[in-house]
Design a protein around this nucleic acid. Sequence first.
RNA 1: GCCCCCUUCGUCUAGUGGCCUAGGACACAGCCCUUUCAAGGCUGCGGCGGGGAUUCGAAUUCCCCAGGGGGCACCA
Length: 482
Amino acid sequence: MTVRVRFAPSPTGWLHIGGARTALYNFLFAKKHSGKFILRIEDTDQSRSTDEAIKAILEDMRWLGLQWDEGPEIGGPYGPYRQTERSHLYEEAIKQLLSSGSAYYCFCSPEELEKMREDALSRKLSFRYPRKCRNISLEEAEERIRRGEPAAVRFKTPLEGRIKINDIVRGEVEFDLSQLDDFVIARSDKSPTYNLAVVVDDALMKITHVIRGDDHLSNTPKQVLIYRALGYPVPEFAHLSMILGPDKKPLSKRHGSTAVFEFKNKGYLPEAMVNYLALLGWSFDDKTTFFTPQELIEKFDLSRVSANPAVFDFQKLEWLNGVWIRQLDTKELAKRIEPYVKSDYGENFEIDENFYKLVELTKERMKTLRDFVDWTYFYFIEENEFSIDEKDLKKVAASSGFKDILKEARDELSALSNWDRSEIEKALRELVARLEEKPKKVFQAVRVAVTGRLVSPPLFESLEILGKERTLRRLEKAVLFL
RNA sequence: GCCCCCUUCGUCUAGUGGCCUAGGACACAGCCCUUUCAAGGCUGCGGCGGGGAUUCGAAUUCCCCAGGGGGCACCA
């Protein structure tokens, strides 16, 4: 039996961290077992679903490297892969359930039921549909429908018994059927409800393992009932716990970024996102934290997924992103950074030697790709727009001899015939010795004057990349300005 | 109200009866390296939700409680 799993988002917004993790676990499980990863769009709620959302979700999934084997844009043998295009399949299933006696028409109006529900709620009782229409015969019901009466379809839930499921991450979970009521499987407009649609789709798409969010656990017994009534094999289930915010509440926008594209914009690498997400609720052993996508595929194990909800740690993600950045080779890293430079300094930017040097220089201090543009402000800024950070300037300018140091530095550096890192260092160190100053004092003075900030990439390399002309100009300007 | 799930350092986790005076990672603190910031190295801080029971022995098994979360729709 070949493994077939699916990720089934409803396109009502962007792909979120939680959804991304569910998709990832499905993907990893499929790849690990040489199975198929299917993407299905659950857009039955037409009022909230949009085509833009579908596009965005597909884009984010591809960015993360979660390419599906069957689904939108690429098709597959069990399509269509959008629920709105599958209505006839649901109608057929409903018809089958009706004629086999597993379901029945219900003529109770939503208003009537709503009233009963409110009433029960106000008396602190649990509401369950009273099964008023359960014994109306199919013939009678069809007659009433012919006369124009609206009717929903309900599943005829057994009055007693238990449903046991063996969840891969949770183990055995049992439900008492007497706790379930006769849930609606088709609305009076004939459209299927979620529980019916998922089962029909998963069954027809031959899904072998349903890996999804925890919030669906209590729906599972209802779905098992439908599988059985329809005569389909029941798949394996694995319910993933939710992702929480630092306050232990379900992760949401108020905790910070939750949409995948936001992390992309901030300069996170897809590999780092995948690495982090994989570790959020799963571990390989007691020490390994770095995994390439390929290693994840080899090592991922659903049964090692933790059942308790995990708090999303933005700091750890950032750290891991830094780890990923540091181990990319410079050329590759430069390619990843390019778009961020372009978005800040113009589309006509082109990768050159200096860019590679800057990447090398900042590589080990970046946490996100966007940090690069921050670190290299001094280089990319137009010369006439260059300015020194006022706070930083104040800090160094307060000490005695600041101006003299800059003047001397300018003289020493302008005398250099070879403008390279080691010559620059030699000249400045000689200056330190001659002035009998602390190295730190001299270097910081030059740093502020030339890079505009007290914190910059290594000084000598920065000056080399900046070039003699620009360096001297800035020193000159600083001397005059002070 | 009913049903279901979850509970090891602040956070992610290792741990399946003795290897645990509970291991790793992030964060935090200190030190080293150092021209700044990082990176790196070292050290430290810090935890089995509570109560019973089983056992020679329990983080690990069982029961109860508490806390957190999810579900109970003609939403998905």
